[in-house]
Design a protein around this nucleic acid. Structure first.
Lengths: 212, 212
DNA sequence: CGCTGAGTTGAAATAGCTCAACTCCTGTGG
DNA sequence: CCACAGGAGTTGAGCTATTTCAACTCAGCG
């Protein structure tokens, strides 16, 4: 795993605190290297994290060695809610990421905005179910790209911070099928690859139609 | 659809209120016929429901006519949380069901137990992703049955309140594959069908192993 | 400038889907 | 109480999409 290689680099194994703009409570951005762990399954829950920059994946390892990514999160989003005191998923940085954290557990009352964030995560997970439940790989990929484009600000250019393997583990398909789906969309004239990790959407309407 | 047939029965189209034990706030159980709608996608959100008896499915209809069930809920569970003011899913009774409702929207502060219920829904949806993401239909069925058995009190006998079609739409597979998976588990000596809708688990360890 | 990992592409194998026939409950009405 | 009708579920056969296995290309990096 690449993460262990990164973790072994001296001076970067421990997150570095960087002072940023003051919030309602004094918050500071903590820097995390790419491919490093934010929290592990089984660890103590209680904090949530807001992504200042970068991207994060939430996943679980299955007994047979496979991995299911249940969510990607990008800048501006909040993750880390758990039911109960123990985390049931792993959170890892995909790229270099800045996080601010907030201890939310054990409060007498919760702010409506906190509830709203938790519920948005719920809806997002349920929407993800709609995608994974589909059988057509091309549709899955179309929905994935539409969603990502939207979250990155609605541009016609999508920055794939995650690897094909990550995408596969997110959509429930192999990296070969991921690759073939992208190739198919490319041959249909819907996409153009600026580079392997940067996709330009040429025909957003056709893509939307595939995504239904 | 059977629901319309049931809805057309005079005297049952409107839910009937039945007085039950008093709660912290005066709550009464509302009775719903099998196969009737509790709320629709697009309707106004704001209330959550606790199931006193019966079973409920949460789903969405896709553009191509397919249906994805994102959750089943049984007695004792609470459903109906939404992010935003509009419902993004349908809720329907699978069988005759008694519900107590609670208006939760627009509060200044939320009780920890309310947050906990919402978060449990989140984790449940994410766990569901792990199941649907798997490619083996036998595994999906094994996980589904284990989960259902557990929620029904850990007995070795599972009461399938939902149809094979419901199960298929929940697990992302066709009813034929659902049927074949059950038949396979039966031929492996893991299950026995007391009736079509009542399954006895003979070899819980083997089932757990399949479910990983 | 070659090495390495990521990504792509091809060919064969396979799991699940589709279509179709059939069985078996269940409930309704005579 | 039995017969029948209709829906739900099962099973079979062929087909298709995706997985698997393998070879190959490409980009980034020391």
């Amino acid at each position: 795993m690449q993460s262990s290689a990164n973790l072994s680099q001296p001076g970067f194994s421990v997150p570095i605190a960087i002072r940023t703009r003051p919030l309602s409570r004094p918050a500071h951005t903590v820097f995390h290297m790419a491919e490093t762990e934010i929290y592990a399954q089984g660890s103590r829950a209680g904090a949530i994290y807001r992504i200042e920059f970068g991207a994060v994946r939430i996943h679980r390892l299955l007994a047979d060695g496979r991995r299911q990514i249940v969510a990607f999160h990008v800048a501006g989003e909040t993750f880390g809610f758990e039911a109960g005191a123990v985390r049931s998923f792993f959170a890892e940085c995909i790229v270099a990421t800045g996080l601010t954290s907030l201890d939310y557990a054990g409060q007498d009352h919760y702010e409506p905005e906190l509830m709203e964030m938790a519920l948005r995560g719920l809806v997002r997970a349920q929407e993800h179910l709609l995608v994974i439940g589909r059988q057509q790989s091309l549709e899955k990929m179309a929905v994935f790209l539409m969603d990502l484009a939207e979250r990155q600000g609605g541009l016609d250019s999508v920055d794939l911070v995650m690897s094909r393997t990550d995408i596969g583990d997110y959509l429930g398909m192999t990296i070969e099928t991921v690759s073939r789906s992208i190739s198919k969309l490319r041959s249909l004239g819907i996409l153009r690859l600026k580079s392997l990790r940067c996709i330009e959407i040429l025909e957003i309407e056709k893509l939307r139609q595939l995504a239904s």
